[in-house]
Structure formats: structure tokens, C-alpha cells
Design a protein around this nucleic acid. Structure first.
Lengths: 342, 342
DNA sequence: CTGTTAGCGCATTCAA
DNA sequence: TTGAATGCGCTAACAG
């Protein structure tokens, strides 16, 4: 950098100022400096900048790749966040270690390698939250914890999503609708989406006066298969399935196929809070309420950067509903003219 | 850190040396220093260390989450790599941006935020390789490029894997075996696994004298379904399917179900180079050759760190075969006593 | 075995 | 609008 300064006939600090833009530099000198940088193939060193400015411009996304691997909708979130970070001149890295214990997070903080965090897979009483607050490490959540806490987050608007979904199905004539949630363990652990979706489904179903059944399933085809057996064995099986479980979907479709139930003639299947990348490629293509992952990611990043730059700023929480996209797996329920159960 | 030094009654550098361990320190002083660090709740600052030592101790895993989302086997690799990095006192971050162009990689290098890279999804003539060599950025590949290049890599031993797989199937009496590869585009682009697996399959099939068919399929259930239609429509359909395509598997199973072909009575299905997390949870549980992701990850990290610490070191390439695990989807082929085709 | 010292490459405060 | 000087927190010679 001092080479650049010499070559441009200015002082080292002037070079620094054109880089950071934190001070007005006259047109000509700025141009000389820029071309000098170019000629010398100069690239500022991020580590040194970080040390001097105490900001690394690195944001981390905490993943917990325990259960089901990263689905398409998570990946879309990652892409959106990466892109948003870039637009704001930041790096976005994914961290996967056991970033949950106090030791880990404290380590992260003191290492000083990241300026802030985005938490995924937030639970209602997520233990990471008090830790991060205590450590003073800026963070934003994808999902939210218990409603009492005032914290920065972006999340799916489950109420609106399920209301839209159920109104659509009821409009098609369905009166017995089943919900396939995530696993009971995940739900019981207070994982936000599982809990809120369950509530939202039951609430909307009640408001619309439809019979609501629900089952849990881990995110595997095998469990999806098993989870829907009782539903299909019932004396009055549901005429529509709402599934918020991408991983279980193949098993569910297989189970229906095994019983020779046609979709959507015999039963409608809609996917909730998933990615169109999965809904579109299933057989048949599934009507779905697609999660606004990209948009949420963008908002989360903006949120985080803002709270890094101004810790006092009023936080701006956002809830976005999933968007209903009608595909081939839903149809109006005909009052059993030719329903064939085997 | 100077506070620690004072409190322990030693010089600043001595503290530094107990941290880095790069110099023998006597028991007593070391103990005093450690307890001083503890009392002051001291944590070394990674950024400062990086600036002074010119090593960030950060390794990056380059992902290209374009097509199919990260599958379980990739995630297992990530976990293995993270763990291995930790054991060697390094951080492992995942980078997902468009880290392929020269500009991006050069940026990464000059930023100086990472010491080295692990490349995933390597193609036979991967453009990133010459770039990284030119930039002098240490890297290791998961997978390998054209065989002529001498570069550090770890990879699956496709030849052994497919030989084992086919010998197993032939031993069960199968003589018509089909292979479902990744998509034609992926194969044509020179993606290593797709190319090498195809070769290995054909070679082993030839050596064993079995009739080999093969099709391509993108990693979606829909395409899996479609890809196997011609196989099943053939006058002499295969009696066994070898699938190296986790994403297509659900569609393939659905297609078989739709034709009322039972697994394994009517047709055997085995999964190649996948993760047991998917094979186990499909219906039925699939016999599979599981990728040694964890071990490969560990080796890749060791490799990379070694080449960072000693760029001249003789590189140690490794090929590991997948391990055949027999589950419920394969059985001996009975010479059509009751084969029911619909 | 331990202390002294000179940077690492840049941001930023003070002067001019 | 620019320059000079100080320091971010730590490492790694060089000296004892």
C-alpha cells in the first residue's frame, strides 16, 4: 500500500481514504491512486483492515446439520444471504460445528473473526440467545423465539400461510384435512416452525370448520410412509394432505401409490413452506406454499448489518407469508362417486 | 495480553509463546501464565494473530449449490472436514458464492482471509485449478481432474466400487444390469464422478460379461421416473438397477411401484456412492455402496494443512472405495418363475 | 529457558 | 483537501 502511495505521489493515508471512502478525495488524486493500484495489482488486505478497524466484514450463518440435510429451501436462503452480504460488501460464511454451547459461541466472539451471526433453526427457548446477548455478539434470527423477547428476526408468517392454504382447500370442497408436521421430537423441542405451523393449521381449520387431523413425521421417506398409514387406514380418511416436510414427501407419495390412490383425483396433497425446487420435481408436481427464503435472507442480512453498525437502532422485524402456487396435486373433492379404496 | 504478562510477571512474548507452543516454557511460569489468562478471562485475538503470523488458520470449502441441494453425503463430508479442521486447530467455513471466476478466486486470495481451499464438485478440466495454481493459493480437491495433472486430491475409488457392486449382483444371478447416472449435462461437463462411474460401470460389466444398459437422470424424482421408463419398457428389462443419484431415487422407486414391480422380488435396486442416511430411510432400505465421506474429508483436511505448512511436501493422494452394505433391496434373480409385468 | 524489539498492513486521530 | 504519526494485538527473529 505504501508502494501505491509513492507511485501516486500521495501519502499512505490518502490511499487508505480512497479505499474506505470515509473522506472526500479530489477527483484527480483519486484517479491517480486508483490507476496506481491497478498497475501494481494492489489488493487491500482484509486481515489488516480488520485488525485496525475492528470489523472483519464477515457474517456467519450458523447451521445445525443434524437431522435432514440442508434442503432446497435452506439452500435458497443461503444463496440469498450470500448475495445480500456481497451487495453490502461483506462475506457470508457457513459455520457448522457444534456452535451451540457457550464455549463455542464465546470462542467465536473472542476470536473476533466474525462481526455477526444469523441463527437458523431457532427454537422457542433457544439457549443460544441469552448467550449471544451476554457476549454482546450481534445476531439476527431466521425464525423467532418465544414472543415475549424483543429481538431481531425475520420469519415466515405461518398464520397467513396456513389460512391461505386451508381456504384454498376448503374452496375446493375438502372437509377432512390432515397435516403432516415435522417429527414429534422436533416439535416437542420447541422448534419454531413445527410449533407455529401446528398452531396455525389447527386454528385455521377450526375457523373454517373443517375436520383437522395431524401427524408427525421425521424427515425421511420411511417415516413419511409410516406416518400416513393411520390416516389412510381411518374409517374416514382425509381428502387432502398438507405436508410441511420435504424429506418425508417421497415416502408419502409412495404410500399413496401403493394404495393406488391417485393424486389429485382421490386425494389432494399440498406442500407447505417448501421450495418450488422440490414441489415442481415431484410426481405429480405439487401445489405448494413456497417459503420466501430469498427475501427473508436478504432482510436478515440487512437487519444484521444494521445492528452491527448501529447497535441502538430500532429493530425491524419482518414476517412474510409463503406464496401459494397451484400445481397438479390439488383438485376439488368430488363427493365419492368412484372413490376406490384398496 | 500485556495485562496477562504483567499479572504473571513475565514478558509479553512469553505469553505469546505459551499460546503458540512454539517454544518450550517451564512448567511453573507456564502455569502462572495460564492462570493469569484465566483470571483475566483472556482470549487471544485471531485477527491480530493472523496479521502477524500471516496465517489465518481458516480453511474454506467451496460449494457449488447449483443443482441438487447438498445431499447427505456432502453434509457428511462437511461434518468430517469440520471435525478434522478442529482437531488441527483450524476453522472450516463453507463458501457458496460464485467462487469460480478468476476475479472471485483472486479476490479470495488477496483478501487473505483463508489459508487454503478444498474444492468440491471438481470437473475433469476444472478451470479453477490453473487459477489457483497461478495464484499460489493452497488447495486440495475432493475428486480429481484429468489424470495427467499431479495435484493433491482425495477421491472415491470408482473402479473398485463398481467392481464390487457388479460382482455382488452377478453373484446373485443378475445378467442384465442398468446404471442410472447423473444427468447427461453433468456428465458431459466432465464432472468427475459421473464420468468415472460410467467408465467403471461399463468396464466391470464388460469384464463380468453382463449386459449393461445405462441412462442419465438429473437429480429429481421426476427425472428419475422418466429416466427409467425406457428401461422398464424394453422387451428385456434389466433385473437390477444401480443408481448413483440420490435425488432421483424416490422417483425411480415410485415408477417401480406404479408398475407393481416389487423390490427385490421383481427387480433389485442398489444405490452407489450415496450416504447410508438416505439408503436406510428409503422404502425398502436400499443395499448401497456408501461413500466414505467422513474419511475422505479427514484426509482432505490433513492434506491441505500439510501443503500449507510445507508447500514442497510430497503430496499424498488417496482413493477410497465405497463400502457395500447389503440391505433389503437386493436379492438373487430367479429365472422368471412368476415375473409379473404390467 | 526468557526478555526485547521490530514489524504485519491498514485505520484514524491530529495537524496542516 | 491532504500528510504524519500512532496503534490495533500479536508473532518471530534476535539477544541473552
Amino acid at each position: 500500500m505504501k508502494d501505491v502511495a509513492q507511485r501516486a505521489g500521495v501519502s499512505l493515508s490518502t490511499v487508505s481514504y480512497v479505499l474506505s471512502g470515509s473522506r472526500p478525495i479530489s477527483g484527480p488524486t483519486r484517479a491517480r491512486i486508483l490507476s496506481a493500484m491497478d498497475e501494481l495489482n494492489f489488493h487491500p488486505n482484509a486481515v489488516a483492515r480488520a485488525l485496525a478497524s475492528k470489523r472483519t466484514k464477515v457474517l456467519a450463518l450458523l447451521l445445525s446439520p443434524q437431522e435432514r440435510g440442508l434442503g432446497h429451501s435452506e439452500l435458497e436462503f443461503v444463496r440469498g444471504a450470500t448475495e445480500a452480504a456481497r451487495n453490502r460488501d461483506h462475506h457470508l460464511v457457513l459455520l457448522t460445528a457444534g456452535m451451540d454451547s457457550e464455549a463455542d459461541l464465546s470462542y467465536l466472539k473472542h476470536q473476533g473473526l466474525v462481526d455477526g451471526l444469523i441463527l437458523m433453526e431457532v427454537r422457542l427457548d433457544d439457549p443460544r440467545i441469552p448467550l449471544l446477548q451476554k457476549l454482546g455478539l450481534p445476531f439476527t434470527m431466521l425464525g423467532r423465539s418465544a414472543p415475549t423477547l424483543v429481538l431481531p428476526f425475520v420469519d415466515i408468517d405461518f398464520d397467513t400461510t396456513y389460512q391461505t392454504l386451508l381456504e384454498y382447500l376448503v374452496g375446493l370442497g375438502h372437509r377432512r384435512i390432515a397435516f403432516v408436521n415435522q417429527s414429534r421430537e422436533v416439535w416437542a423441542s420447541g422448534y419454531g416452525p413445527a410449533v407455529r405451523a401446528q398452531q396455525a393449521f389447527e386454528h385455521s381449520a377450526g375457523a373454517l370448520g373443517v375436520t383437522a387431523l395431524s401427524v408427525f413425521s421425521s424427515s425421511t421417506p420411511r417415516d413419511g410412509w409410516e406416518a400416513c398409514q393411520p390416516l389412510l387406514d381411518a374409517s374416514e380418511p382425509p381428502t387432502a394432505l398438507v405436508v410441511m416436510n420435504d424429506g418425508a414427501l417421497p415416502g408419502i407419495l409412495l404410500a399413496l401409490s401403493a394404495r393406488c390412490l391417485r393424486i389429485p383425483e382421490d386425494i389432494s396433497v399440498v406442500s407447505a413452506c417448501s421450495s418450488s425446487l422440490v414441489s415442481e420435481t415431484l410426481l405429480p408436481a405439487l401445489t405448494s406454499a413456497d417459503a420466501p427464503s430469498r427475501e427473508l435472507a436478504r432482510l436478515a442480512v440487512e437487519n444484521l448489518i444494521q445492528s452491527i453498525e448501529d447497535p441502538e437502532a430500532a429493530l425491524q422485524n419482518v414476517l412474510l407469508p409463503c406464496q401459494l402456487i397451484i400445481r397438479a396435486s390439488s383438485a376439488s373433492f368430488r363427493t365419492e362417486p368412484e372413490r376406490k379404496n384398496i
